[in-house]
Protein backbone atom coordinates (compact mmCIF):
# COMPACT_ATOMS: atom_id res chain seq x y z
CA UNK A 1 0.00 0.00 0.00
CA UNK A 2 1.48 3.29 -1.09
CA UNK A 3 0.94 6.09 1.42
CA UNK A 4 1.98 9.06 -0.66
CA UNK A 5 2.51 9.66 -4.37
CA UNK A 6 4.79 12.61 -5.06
CA UNK A 7 4.24 14.02 -8.54
CA UNK A 8 6.80 16.23 -10.24
CA UNK A 9 5.38 18.12 -13.22
CA UNK A 10 7.92 18.80 -15.91
CA UNK A 11 7.80 20.59 -19.22
CA UNK A 12 11.10 21.94 -20.50
CA UNK A 13 12.97 22.79 -17.34
CA UNK A 14 16.21 21.08 -18.42
CA UNK A 15 18.92 21.23 -15.76
CA UNK A 16 16.67 23.17 -13.39
CA UNK A 17 14.78 19.93 -12.85
CA UNK A 18 17.82 18.43 -11.15
CA UNK A 19 17.46 20.39 -7.90
CA UNK A 20 13.69 19.83 -7.89
CA UNK A 21 14.14 16.10 -8.22
CA UNK A 22 16.73 16.05 -5.48
CA UNK A 23 14.48 18.03 -3.15
CA UNK A 24 11.66 15.60 -3.83
CA UNK A 25 13.89 12.61 -3.18
CA UNK A 26 15.17 14.09 0.08
CA UNK A 27 11.60 14.66 1.24
CA UNK A 28 10.66 11.13 0.20
CA UNK A 29 13.66 9.66 2.05
CA UNK A 30 12.73 11.47 5.24
CA UNK A 31 9.18 10.13 4.96
CA UNK A 32 10.38 6.59 4.21
CA UNK A 33 12.68 6.71 7.20
CA UNK A 34 9.57 7.29 9.30
CA UNK A 35 7.90 4.23 7.76
CA UNK A 36 5.85 5.74 4.93
CA UNK A 37 5.66 4.14 1.49
CA UNK A 38 6.30 6.90 -1.04
CA UNK A 39 6.33 6.67 -4.83
CA UNK A 40 7.70 9.38 -7.10
CA UNK A 41 6.21 10.06 -10.51
CA UNK A 42 7.64 12.54 -13.00
CA UNK A 43 5.01 13.75 -15.44
CA UNK A 44 6.90 14.87 -18.52
CA UNK A 45 4.46 16.88 -20.59
CA UNK A 46 5.60 17.84 -24.09
CA UNK A 47 9.07 17.81 -22.66
CA UNK A 48 12.51 18.17 -24.27
CA UNK A 49 15.55 15.93 -24.38
CA UNK A 50 17.48 17.99 -21.84
CA UNK A 51 14.78 17.39 -19.25
CA UNK A 52 14.54 13.69 -20.12
CA UNK A 53 18.30 13.44 -19.71
CA UNK A 54 18.01 14.77 -16.15
CA UNK A 55 15.28 12.24 -15.41
CA UNK A 56 17.40 9.41 -16.75
CA UNK A 57 19.90 10.01 -13.94
CA UNK A 58 17.27 9.15 -11.29
CA UNK A 59 16.37 5.47 -11.53
CA UNK A 60 13.92 5.53 -8.60
CA UNK A 61 11.60 7.87 -10.42
CA UNK A 62 8.76 6.59 -12.63
CA UNK A 63 8.62 8.76 -15.73
CA UNK A 64 5.28 9.18 -17.51
CA UNK A 65 5.27 11.13 -20.76
CA UNK A 66 2.18 13.04 -21.87
CA UNK A 67 1.28 15.42 -24.67
CA UNK A 68 -1.53 17.38 -23.05
CA UNK A 69 0.54 20.58 -23.12
CA UNK A 70 -1.15 21.99 -20.05
CA UNK A 71 0.09 22.04 -16.48
CA UNK A 72 -3.28 21.37 -14.86
CA UNK A 73 -4.21 18.55 -17.21
CA UNK A 74 -0.78 17.01 -16.71
CA UNK A 75 -1.43 17.00 -12.95
CA UNK A 76 -4.71 15.19 -13.63
CA UNK A 77 -2.78 12.61 -15.66
CA UNK A 78 -0.41 12.20 -12.75
CA UNK A 79 -3.30 11.54 -10.39
CA UNK A 80 -4.54 8.81 -12.73
CA UNK A 81 -1.12 7.17 -12.49
CA UNK A 82 -0.85 7.55 -8.71
CA UNK A 83 -1.19 4.62 -6.31
CA UNK A 84 -0.89 6.54 -3.05
CA UNK A 85 -3.67 7.31 -0.60
CA UNK A 86 -2.33 10.85 -0.64
CA UNK A 87 -0.97 12.87 -3.53
CA UNK A 88 1.31 15.89 -3.50
CA UNK A 89 2.60 18.02 -6.36
CA UNK A 90 5.77 19.89 -7.18
CA UNK A 91 6.39 21.97 -10.30
CA UNK A 92 9.54 21.15 -12.21
CA UNK A 93 11.74 24.03 -11.13
CA UNK A 94 10.54 24.49 -7.53
CA UNK A 95 11.71 22.77 -4.36
CA UNK A 96 10.19 21.33 -1.22
CA UNK A 97 11.67 21.57 2.22
CA UNK A 98 12.93 18.12 3.31
CA UNK A 99 10.16 17.63 5.88
CA UNK A 100 7.26 18.37 3.52
CA UNK A 101 5.91 14.90 2.84
CA UNK A 102 6.29 13.62 6.38
CA UNK A 103 4.80 16.67 8.07
CA UNK A 104 1.98 17.09 5.57
CA UNK A 105 1.10 13.42 5.93
CA UNK A 106 1.13 13.73 9.70
CA UNK A 107 -1.16 16.76 9.58
CA UNK A 108 -3.52 15.05 7.16
CA UNK A 109 -3.94 11.84 9.14
CA UNK A 110 -4.48 13.77 12.39
CA UNK A 111 -7.11 15.98 10.83
CA UNK A 112 -10.74 15.17 11.50
CA UNK A 113 -11.95 17.11 8.47
CA UNK A 114 -11.22 16.72 4.76
CA UNK A 115 -8.59 19.29 3.92
CA UNK A 116 -6.04 20.45 1.39
CA UNK A 117 -2.63 21.11 2.90
CA UNK A 118 -0.18 23.85 2.02
CA UNK A 119 3.23 24.87 3.33
CA UNK A 120 3.36 27.54 5.99
CA UNK A 121 5.28 29.78 3.61
CA UNK A 122 7.00 29.77 0.25
CA UNK A 123 10.35 31.40 -0.35
CA UNK A 124 10.30 33.15 -3.72
CA UNK A 125 13.69 33.26 -5.41
CA UNK A 126 15.19 33.64 -8.85
CA UNK A 127 17.80 35.43 -10.90
CA UNK A 128 15.88 38.66 -11.38
CA UNK A 129 13.80 38.90 -8.23
CA UNK A 130 14.55 40.02 -4.71
CA UNK A 131 13.94 37.00 -2.48
CA UNK A 132 10.92 37.22 -0.20
CA UNK A 133 8.52 35.09 1.76
CA UNK A 134 4.97 34.42 0.70
CA UNK A 135 3.06 33.11 3.74
CA UNK A 136 -0.01 30.96 3.25
CA UNK A 137 -3.07 31.77 5.34
CA UNK A 138 -5.16 29.12 7.00
CA UNK A 139 -8.65 28.84 5.59
CA UNK A 140 -10.04 29.51 9.06
CA UNK A 141 -8.18 32.80 9.38
CA UNK A 142 -9.53 36.13 8.22
CA UNK A 143 -6.65 36.40 5.75
CA UNK A 144 -7.69 33.09 4.19
CA UNK A 145 -11.30 34.16 3.80
CA UNK A 146 -13.11 32.26 1.06
CA UNK A 147 -14.98 35.28 -0.31
CA UNK A 148 -11.69 37.05 -0.92
CA UNK A 149 -10.77 34.17 -3.24
CA UNK A 150 -12.87 36.07 -5.76
CA UNK A 151 -10.15 38.66 -5.88
CA UNK A 152 -6.90 36.98 -4.95
CA UNK A 153 -5.40 33.53 -4.72
CA UNK A 154 -4.41 32.41 -1.24
CA UNK A 155 -2.48 29.23 -1.97
CA UNK A 156 0.16 28.07 -4.44
CA UNK A 157 -0.15 24.83 -6.38
CA UNK A 158 2.20 22.43 -4.52
CA UNK A 159 -0.54 21.03 -2.30
CA UNK A 160 -1.10 17.77 -0.40
CA UNK A 161 -4.44 16.00 -0.14
CA UNK A 162 -6.11 12.63 -0.43
CA UNK A 163 -5.95 11.31 -3.98
CA UNK A 164 -9.74 11.23 -4.04
CA UNK A 165 -9.76 15.03 -3.70
CA UNK A 166 -7.80 15.46 -6.92
CA UNK A 167 -9.97 12.85 -8.62
CA UNK A 168 -13.15 14.56 -7.51
CA UNK A 169 -11.94 18.06 -8.33
CA UNK A 170 -9.62 17.88 -11.33
CA UNK A 171 -7.62 20.82 -12.62
CA UNK A 172 -9.00 22.88 -15.49
CA UNK A 173 -7.18 23.69 -18.71
CA UNK A 174 -5.84 27.20 -19.05
CA UNK A 175 -6.26 29.26 -22.19
CA UNK A 176 -4.16 32.39 -22.16
CA UNK A 177 -5.32 33.37 -25.65
CA UNK A 178 -8.75 33.96 -24.14
CA UNK A 179 -7.26 35.21 -20.87
CA UNK A 180 -8.29 32.16 -18.81
CA UNK A 181 -5.45 31.34 -16.44
CA UNK A 182 -4.43 30.55 -12.87
CA UNK A 183 -5.32 26.85 -12.77
CA UNK A 184 -4.26 26.67 -9.12
CA UNK A 185 -6.48 29.58 -8.11
CA UNK A 186 -9.45 28.00 -9.88
CA UNK A 187 -8.69 24.70 -8.16
CA UNK A 188 -8.55 26.38 -4.76
CA UNK A 189 -11.99 27.86 -5.44
CA UNK A 190 -13.47 24.61 -6.68
CA UNK A 191 -12.17 22.61 -3.74
CA UNK A 192 -13.57 25.25 -1.40
CA UNK A 193 -16.91 24.98 -3.19
CA UNK A 194 -16.71 21.22 -2.70
CA UNK A 195 -16.52 21.76 1.06
CA UNK A 196 -12.81 21.27 1.62
CA UNK A 197 -10.87 23.53 3.89
CA UNK A 198 -7.37 24.71 3.05
CA UNK A 199 -4.92 24.41 5.94
CA UNK A 200 -1.23 25.02 6.45
CA UNK A 201 1.26 22.50 7.75
CA UNK A 202 3.34 24.07 10.53
CA UNK A 203 7.10 24.36 10.06
CA UNK A 204 7.08 23.65 6.35
CA UNK A 205 8.48 25.66 3.47
CA UNK A 206 8.60 25.44 -0.28
CA UNK A 207 11.02 27.29 -2.52
CA UNK A 208 9.34 28.77 -5.58
CA UNK A 209 11.52 29.85 -8.46
CA UNK A 210 10.38 32.98 -10.30
CA UNK A 211 11.56 33.00 -13.92
CA UNK A 212 11.05 35.67 -16.59
CA UNK A 213 9.13 33.13 -18.67
CA UNK A 214 7.27 31.49 -15.80
CA UNK A 215 3.64 30.58 -16.22
CA UNK A 216 2.60 33.13 -13.60
CA UNK A 217 4.38 35.92 -15.43
CA UNK A 218 2.91 34.89 -18.77
CA UNK A 219 -0.52 34.78 -17.19
CA UNK A 220 -0.11 38.26 -15.74
CA UNK A 221 1.24 39.55 -19.02
CA UNK A 222 -1.80 38.20 -20.85
CA UNK A 223 -4.04 40.07 -18.34
CA UNK A 224 -5.76 36.77 -17.68
CA UNK A 225 -8.47 36.20 -15.15
CA UNK A 226 -8.88 33.18 -12.96
CA UNK A 227 -10.64 30.46 -14.90
CA UNK A 228 -14.21 30.88 -13.59
CA UNK A 229 -15.28 28.81 -10.64
CA UNK A 230 -18.72 27.76 -9.45
CA UNK A 231 -17.86 28.89 -5.92
CA UNK A 232 -19.53 32.28 -6.05
CA UNK A 233 -22.59 31.22 -7.96
CA UNK A 234 -23.10 28.31 -5.55
CA UNK A 235 -22.71 30.46 -2.48
CA UNK A 236 -24.78 33.48 -3.41
CA UNK A 237 -26.71 34.60 -0.34
CA UNK A 238 -24.33 32.42 1.67
CA UNK A 239 -25.46 31.41 5.10
CA UNK A 240 -23.99 28.47 6.89
CA UNK A 241 -27.09 26.48 7.85
CA UNK A 242 -25.87 25.31 11.20
CA UNK A 243 -25.19 28.88 12.29
CA UNK A 244 -28.30 30.54 10.97
CA UNK A 245 -30.06 32.61 13.58
Amino acid sequence: MTDVTAILNLHREGVLAQASLLSMKHAAEQARAAGLAVEIIAMADCTDQATLDVLARHPGVRVVQTEVNDLGLARNEGVREAQGRYVTFLDGDDLWGPGWILRAHGAAIRSAEPAVWHPEASLLFGQDVAPSWLPHPDGEEAEGDWVVLGMRNHWTSPSFAERSVYERVPYRRTNLDQQFGYEDWNWNCETTAAGLIHRVVPDTAHLIRVRPDSMVRRTISAQSLMTPSRLFRDRIGWLRPEEAG
Binding site: P98, D203, R209
Partner: peptide, 21 residues
Protein backbone atom coordinates in the same frame (compact mmCIF):
# COMPACT_ATOMS: atom_id res chain seq x y z
CA UNK B 1 12.14 29.93 12.78
CA UNK B 2 10.92 26.42 11.92
CA UNK B 3 9.89 27.53 8.45
CA UNK B 4 13.19 29.26 7.75
CA UNK B 5 15.01 26.19 9.06
CA UNK B 6 13.21 24.00 6.53
CA UNK B 7 14.24 26.25 3.67
CA UNK B 8 17.78 26.45 4.99
CA UNK B 9 17.98 22.65 5.19
CA UNK B 10 16.99 22.29 1.55
CA UNK B 11 19.41 24.99 0.45
CA UNK B 12 22.17 23.11 2.26
CA UNK B 13 21.26 19.94 0.37
CA UNK B 14 21.00 21.34 -3.17
CA UNK B 15 22.56 24.79 -3.01
CA UNK B 16 25.78 23.42 -4.43
CA UNK B 17 24.15 22.86 -7.81
CA UNK B 18 21.86 25.87 -7.72
CA UNK B 19 23.45 29.28 -8.12
CA UNK B 20 20.13 31.03 -7.45
CA UNK B 21 19.91 29.34 -4.06
Amino acid sequence: PGVAAEARAMIALVGGIEADL
